[in-house]
């Protein structure tokens, strides 16, 4: 009986550890809230040399393991380890609604100066599809860090060899080509393709788009069920090396430099005037003071120059794509308008 008791105790301890682990993050947040008032007072006193005075909450508006989560954790890690920011940075996941849940949480704390979050084009696509009232204009863009590009790929035995082959076929009979992407119409995978073929003169309203789930787009392409897969350069590399696919075009300004991806033709060199950057950056709440925004911008700038950051870029295959706060905001406004116009034209938006 004694042994059994011991075992029970063991199970209970395990259970308690699990509970504590799960609650850990929340306790931190509560403490931060309590401290909030005092720190705000501090920051207004030393306005010109703002510095974070307590741990910084880094919200990943997505679940663990995805792109935003990885960006948040990597940036937090480098900023902390290189002592660019003296405060602890806690990554907190707020998944749901394609980001909308996390954004509304951040918006509720719009004056919090100790709050950051990673973003990428969905912060434009989600509100453009009326799935969030909040968009990039409700937040403070601090810096864009990396950029990836869209890739349009076909299977190795496809009749299309160049983007223009595909465009010609679509001009002739749009219903003969099925495009697959890993998210719903109106989202990035869809619109990046629409934008490209629209620039090439295809009637974008007629494009036949299928949305796959769980990343099954590549399976459908390789299995021959669909003709074109609209994805990112990173996703195309391994299948290209294996000889399973052809890359018709990527959306960068110029050819990329690394060995395999340098073989991917750009749309521009094929005479299609279209560039689409899948940028990744950091934003803060909307009512952040100019001083704190400047602090974070400088910290991020400093971070991108460290070797540790460059190692991380290599690890994940990210291309550096620096934009400071001002340039980043202007870029976002312009991209938003372009995509909105396009969505109105193809009837996805009024």
């Amino acid at each position: 009986m004694n042994m059994n008791k011991n075992f029970l105790t063991f199970v209970l301890i395990l259970a308690l550890t699990a509970i504590l682990a799960a609650c850990g993050d929340d306790n931190e947040n509560e403490n931060e809230n309590e401290n909030e008032n005092s720190s705000e007072a501090n920051s207004s006193v030393e306005a010109d040399a703002w510095k974070p005075s307590k741990p910084i909450e880094f919200i990943a508006p997505a679940g663990a393991g995805g792109g935003w989560d990885t960006t948040a954790r990597t940036v937090a890690k480098v900023l902390e380890e290189e002592s660019i920011v003296d405060q602890r940075m806690a990554v907190v996941n707020k998944p749901g609604g394609g980001g909308a849940i996390g954004w509304s949480y951040i918006n509720e704390k719009s004056t919090d100066e100790h709050l950051l979050f990673p973003t990428s084009p969905p912060i434009m696509f989600v509100p453009l599809n009326d799935q969030s009232d909040l968009g990039h204009k409700d937040f403070t863009p601090l810096a864009a860090l990396t950029g990836d590009y869209a890739a349009f790929i076909v299977s190795a035995d496809s009749p299309f060899d160049t983007m223009n082959d595909l465009v010609d076929a679509m001009k002739e009979d749009p219903s003969s080509v099925t495009v697959v992407g890993d998210s719903a119409p109106g989202s990035m995978d869809h619109m990046q393709f629409i934008k490209a073929v629209h620039a090439a003169g295809v009637d974008a309203k007629e494009v036949k788009f299928v949305s796959s789930q769980d990343g099954a787009g590549m399976t459908m392409l390789l299995g021959g069920q669909v003709d074109v897969y609209s994805t990112g350069v990173g996703e195309a590399v391994e299948q290209y090396r294996a000889g399973n696919i052809k890359v018709l075009g990527i959306t960068s300004e110029e050819r990329l430099t690394e060995d395999v991806v340098s073989e991917f033709p750009t749309l521009k060199e094929q005479g299609i005037d279209d560039v689409f950057i899948v940028w990744r950056g950091i934003m803060g709440p909307g009512d952040m003071s100019e001083e704190s925004a400047a602090f974070y911008e400088n910290a991020l700038k400093e971070m991108t120059e460290t070797d540790a950051w460059k190692e991380e870029l290599e690890r994940y295959g990210w291309e550096p794509n620096w934009m400071g706060s001002e340039e980043f905001s202007a870029f976002l406004d312009e991209q938003y308008d372009t995509i909105e116009e396009l969505m109105i034209e193809i009837g996805l938006r009024n």
Binding site: G215, Q239, R315
Partner: peptide, 24 residues
């Protein structure tokens, strides 16, 4: 290199972190 479930998708992400690109 195609994750068929949520769990294998996370594993794919983890493999990228340790420098392996799962795929053909």
């Amino acid at each position: 290199g195609i994750p068929g479930s949520g769990t294998t998708a996370i594993m794919l992400g983890a493999l990228l972190v340790v420098g392996v690109q799962p795929g053909p």
